[in-house]
Design a protein around this nucleic acid. Sequence first.
DNA 1: GAGCTGGTATACCGATCGGTATAGTGCCAC
DNA 2: GTGGCACTATACCGATCGGTATACCAGCTC
Lengths: 200, 200
Amino acid sequence: MPEQRAQTETPAARRVLDAASELFYTRGINAVGVDLIAKRAGVTKKTLYDRFGSKDALIVAYLRKRDERWRAWLVAYVERTAGGAEPAARILATFDALAEWAVRESPRGCSLVNAAAELPDPQHPARKVIVGQKRWLRDHLLELCRQAGAAEPEVLADELALMHEGANVMIGLGVLHDPVGTVQRLAEQALVRAGARSSS
Amino acid sequence: MPEQRAQTETPAARRVLDAASELFYTRGINAVGVDLIAKRAGVTKKTLYDRFGSKDALIVAYLRKRDERWRAWLVAYVERTAGGAEPAARILATFDALAEWAVRESPRGCSLVNAAAELPDPQHPARKVIVGQKRWLRDHLLELCRQAGAAEPEVLADELALMHEGANVMIGLGVLHDPVGTVQRLAEQALVRAGARSSS
DNA sequence: GAGCTGGTATACCGATCGGTATAGTGCCAC
DNA sequence: GTGGCACTATACCGATCGGTATACCAGCTC
């Protein structure tokens, strides 16, 4: 079901979503008003509401788009850098991808985690998108852990997912001198421990 | 320098800070107005501004207070549960403390990390408080790692600090079935690897 | 008893919030 | 050639935003 997705593919709708994406991420969701988004998109507020219906729905569209972009980029990155390699190498490539994405596209931390901080209501539709992404990553890692022959794949996948979020936060805050290297080291050591990779 | 701290210790100021703390954390900083805070505190807006000067200053006071409370609680917890024990055990106790605090006092994630998501301006005075807490934890862990005779204490401390933040996020999102157990396992394994603790 | 301090109550400021209403335009399909 | 669709322009709604102004009061100190 495309829901009202078909309506959001007009040129004006795309411009609205682009403007909202940049403003929401760099300034925060609650700090950005619909008037500003419409102005930046070169669009009337009427058009914005005709396409998206409400600010909440626009927020959901924003998060959904970031999520989709990230998933596609991650899969492509791993395929490109470790396509034919063994599963353990592809898990490590996933952490290389995290590092590159975070530095380039998410210097202020994960957009979905930041959104969760601003949307406390557990019933908010955005939460499904947020939790959905984290769940997807954990399941994606779990599949790779199984393929890598990890001793306890569920345990290992949880560990890797937790490190992933920790690295995202640390990159955003700039507390550690080398969060990327730290998480890459941690990931490799976790793989070794689970018997999914020989010690280097 | 107590700065304007002395002025914030009147009964009304304390009520303002208490009300702000609860509202800021549960609803988000940008979603809460000063009118609501004053009303909840049973105080006039004039009093709020006489004591704190601005909403930004109130935000800083809120974060500072949470930070102080957390540090004191953490140190006391470790002292109480592993006071005389070896350094490695005290590091593990630090992660037990994290778990208990997060579940009881920060079910929506770390208040300072959430605040960082809402305050993108790098010049905002609140950022010093936020980074200060994370830096403090990392240095605190570093000292314990040194005492524990870790091979590379700086590396280990960075790893532990990163896990800590990852666990905070995961507890807040509810994606993993047992984020607490996951991070406790990770911490123990990192200690073993660094030679700070014998394998269990 | 004058003056300072920590309050109270109320009213106001311009700006912005999310969202709606009315009216009109250009384009394309049937 | 008419009807629908995507869009523009402008104006409006009540509510709330952070912050200020005026006036008054109780208690304490010198």
